[in-house]
Write a protein that binds this DNA or RNA. Structure first.
Lengths: 343, 343
DNA sequence: TTCTCTACTGTGAACGCTCACAAACGCAGG
DNA sequence: CCTGCGTTTGTGAGCGTTCACAGTAGAGAA
């Protein structure tokens, strides 16, 4: 026998209570709640006053039940999470999306699909309409989730250019190729000609595009593209170090390295130091991402900044537009060369 | 008259459809969905088959509307996010909580309350019952959100011991004091006697407790606690470096430092090197957290591991128990000394 | 057989909201 | 004065579930 008076969980006010206090009907309150069209100024004001007085907050479950929308969107991660969660870029992205959505009063559901099991459960959850749309982060190609969601007609925006499917799915990405071009041009402008590259996995758009930009610029500049100067890493620090060792072995005359991520570049710096090469005197090193790692390394990395804040806000914008009925869209954002001490 | 056949967003199956296919009533399907008590094996099987056949997924909005529960949990951040999101510990925590909840099929809503405005909106959202409980991460004391939520009767579990309010609120924390004691004892066992400390902000439990452990062990060992050996940082790398410089200036004979976070310890290492002290020969350095920074620094840090995976799973367990009606509970988890090259 | 008890099953009502519809109310034009 | 029209308002129905309750069947005891 709880007597809910001052404290405790008393039943929250409903639209009915507001209507009674305002002296109008449910319908009018509902109209005010949803934009206030076809409501007289007097009623409008009365309702708003009643809402303030009662502390009314709309029950989203009841609303969703009838509208069919959930007024929430999912942030889906299909990567092995360990790696991604330690990626500072990812954190900026997650935070950016949360804030951009908060501005629309839309909560963000964080979903991790690590195992096959989780993947299935989450796909069911999403396709059942429990979110209105999905922000998808999954760099590797051949991700079955993206395809499933697309087929189910779920509004979807990917972060980074998807490799498999064509232009049927929205995405927001930094201009990887152009960023790579900027960096390699920068290295060329320093007089470097034996420029190595540690690229990312070739089943990721970043890996492919950054390598393509590298080759393009060299060709355009009339510099031979030497396959001995090309190695592949997996974006980890360790793979950067291993890559640098391989490069030095195959091309001891290397005078610069373009590394497809700052984390790998850190590994490259360590390996170079261990091999007795000075940076930037003997070898210039260019990174990619402008992550915190770039300023923490010694020397501080010259790198390519990805506009993560804009990427997140654009992802949200495109997704909301798509939920509103727009067609899928691709957004490519420019990168910026940040010059520091490693070149 | 739509003929929904193969493609398009056809209406998802309802409990009604399942009942029809299974040849039973809504009630029976509902009972199967909710644990299957008082249902005959035959009906049980028929319903499960019908669910598989129709691809039925429960409409959580309808369920929430009547049960009053939302079957979702909020993960609330009231810190200035920049700092926290770059903290590797925090990422482990977020991931751990998401996964622990996923095991219960409960989605996690990520909420950031950076500004005062957001704080208000989110408090309204939560108190309106849109989440069943809240996992709160906010180390600083005097956080008004915690108090508001507690008063509103929202199940709440904090990460780290809350400073303000007493034992009325649940929390899960590593044993900061004991961890600090282990580390200082370890330093003493190496023969060090002039042990400095760079502690965290004194309005955080970590700052206070780790300092307390340090002082306790020194006193117990009969070593004088010299206030010149005590400085305060803010958990940032830079503040660690500044702290080390201050310590060296005030107590040049220092032969060890206990640093309250690995990130600060990195700064300490750099400052010591710059001052010409060798680690660990001249000065032993002990960190706290066992974050990635601990193995990335040179030399690798001896540190105190916080059991973040267990912290997250315990937070979820305690919160679910509290939602189920249990009283608030405090859980203190043991830490582990990880010996590496800096001591 | 008949009664009782238990295990199971079906059925309205309700949750809080939106939507479509109808009613009411001006106000202008014939 | 009536008609027609546009704007504002009220009302009933229904979204898909769960819950309480009533009902049914089958087993065991008398």
């Amino acid at each position: 026998m709880t007597m809910s008076n001052t404290a405790g969980r008393r039943r929250p006010p409903t639209i009915h209570d507001v209507a009674r206090v305002a002296g109008v009907s449910r319908g009018t309150v509902s109209r005010v709640l949803n934009g206030g069209h076809h409501v007289s100024p007097a009623a409008q004001e009365a309702v708003n006053a009643a809402i303030r007085k009662t502390g009314y907050v709309v029950n989203r479950h009841a609303r969703s039940l009838i509208t069919g929308r959930s007024d929430s969107i999912g942030f889906l991660l299909t990567e092995p999470q360990e790696k991604l969660f330690e990626d500072p870029n990812f954190n900026v992205l997650l935070r950016g999306c949360t804030q951009a959505l908060a501005a629309h009063d839309i909560p963000l559901l964080l979903m991790l699909a690590g195992t096959e099991d989780e993947r299935r459960r989450i796909t069911r959850y999403i396709t059942a309409g429990h979110v209105d749309g999905v922000l998808l982060v999954s760099s590797h190609s051949g991700d079955p989730v993206a395809e499933e969601l697309r087929e189910a007609g779920v509004p979807l925006v990917q972060c980074g250019k998807p490799m498999g499917l064509g232009s049927k799915v929205s995405y927001v990405a930094a201009d990887d190729r152009d960023g790579a071009r900027d960096m390699v041009r920068h290295l060329l402008s320093l007089g470097r000609r034996r420029i190595g590259v540690v690229t990312g996995p070739l089943d990721t758009p970043g890996g492919v595009e950054r390598l393509a930009g590298y080759k393009e610029v060299l060709s355009e500049a009339g510099v031979e593209v030497d396959e001995r100067l090309v190695v592949t890493g997996d974006y980890s620090r360790a793979s950067g170090g291993a890559g640098a060792e391989r490069l030095l072995e195959r091309a001891p005359d290397m005078d610069a390295v373009f590394v497809a991520s700052d984390l790998m570049a850190q590994g490259v710096l360590t390996a170079l130091r261990r091999a007795g090469r000075r940076v930037p005197e003997d070898v210039s090193v260019g990174g990619f991402d402008d992550s915190p790692a770039a300023t923490e390394s010694a020397p501080a990395l010259t790198t390519i900044r990805q506009p993560w804040d804009r990427i997140s806000s654009e992802m949200v914008r495109v997704l909301l537009a798509q939920i509103g009925g727009d067609d899928p869209a691709a957004v490519i954002l420019p990168t910026v060369l940040v010059r520091r001490d490693s070149t």
